[in-house]
């Protein structure tokens, strides 16, 4: 019997700026199926947080129900976590974010959790522009209940049992752009070189950052005829550009003849190379067109799709206090009878 992760790590593991190694960003050993794309995404999230030197206790992981929503157990084991009711992660995220704006909110959801049962919640989280990363591990099927087609399964995609999906798919990327998300990206669990910089940029984005990650279900949706299999995705993948995340203070050395640099809110930057023709990530219309063109050609467009680096998240819109509620002292929360009377007076 095995299935126990040894505690030994590579003796020469590099440390990040706050003296942590990758081990400090690990979670428990995954109990998902061997080869699940979700595990790869978990690895990418841990790696991105390590590279950004985020203190693990400054992160809150939020998820709903499903294979995807189990994953927060498998990364960032030293962070806060809340595994909510099915599809209700955005509500809990909203509450947590309003109560404590200082934490980094990392929402993990699946295609069932976000595109079916939680659709009503998902759209409002976007509309309200919570400052969070919202990552959907999208495998086009209900892996936890034996692989039925989900709402993101493509029309014509064949299931493992051989039935062909007759319904159109909900495109979460297009939907989030339509609803006004200011950071929209799509990636693939099998392409960490692209996924890790996207996650880092999403963490740095000051508003709602949405990443749709195609994540093959090896057990129920990795068959010939499926449009979410490793082979199909690799054959049809197209990138808007290559993505490179450059932290603040680091000198930018690349040249930009066929590329573009986007400065993020905190001064770090996204370097994009080999840009997709006619696409400008800061121009929503061109992003919409690029998406539609790819769809027409049967391509899976990945990479950064749209970004508006200057966005006002919910706290800014509501002009709430800068201080997390849990450290607001009684004298501020309860300013006394004089303040109450002054308020009442102003309303007379």
């Amino acid at each position: 019997m095995t299935y126990v992760r040894p505690t030994f790590r590579h003796p020469d593991l590099p440390k990040n700026n706050i003296n942590f190694t990758k081990k400090d960003y690990e979670g428990a050993l995954s109990t998902l199926c061997a080869g699940c794309g979700h595990d790869s995404i978990s690895g990418a999230i841990a790696q991105a947080c390590f590279e950004l030197s985020v203190e693990p206790h400054r992160i809150a992981k939020l998820s709903g129900i499903g294979c995807s929503s189990k994953t927060p157990a498998y990364f960032l084991g030293n962070s806060h976590g809340f595994n909510t009711v099915h599809g209700r992660m955005p509500s809990v995220a909203t509450g947590a974010y309003l109560a404590n704006r200082d934490l980094l909110y990392f929402g993990v959801s699946g295609d069932g959790d976000s595109a079916s049962i939680g659709m009503g919640q998902f759209v409002h989280a976007i509309r309200r522009n919570l400052n969070m990363v919202y990552l959907v591990m999208n495998n086009g099927c209900y892996g936890l209940t034996k692989g039925q087609d989900s709402a993101t399964a493509d029309n014509g995609s064949k299931s493992k049992a051989g039935s062909v999906n007759p319904f159109n798919a909900i495109d979460l990327v297009g939907l989030s752009m339509e609803l006004g998300a200011t950071f929209v990206a799509r990636s693939f669990s099998g392409d960490k070189a692209q996924l890790i910089p996207l996650i880092k940029a999403a963490i740095k984005h000051p508003g709602f950052a949405f990443i749709d990650v195609i994540s093959p279900c090896v057990t129920f949706n990795n068959n010939v005829g499926s449009t979410k299999s490793y082979d199909y995705v690799r054959e049809h993948i197209e990138a808007t550009s290559t993505v490179d995340f450059v932290p603040i203070m680091e000198e930018i050395t690349a040249d930009y003849e066929d590329g573009k640099e986007i400065t993020l809110h905190d001064g770090s930057a996204l370097q994009l190379q080999k840009l997709h023709q006619g696409w400008n990530p800061e121009d929503k219309l061109s992003a919409m067109i690029a998406l539609q063109n790819a769809k027409d050609k049967g391509e899976i467009l990945t990479g950064l799709v749209y970004i508006d680096p200057n966005t006002n998240a919910l706290h800014d819109v509501l002009q709430t206090t800068q201080t997390p509620l849990n450290i607001l002292k009684e004298d501020i929360l309860c300013p006394g009878i004089d303040a109450l009377e002054a308020l009442n007076e102003s309303l007379r």
């Binding site: 590579h10 061997a34 595990d39 669990s189």
Partner: peptide, 11 residues
Amino acid sequence: CDACMDVCPTD
């Protein structure tokens, strides 16, 4: 699928 790379305790 990268599963081996992700799970390897000693990279």
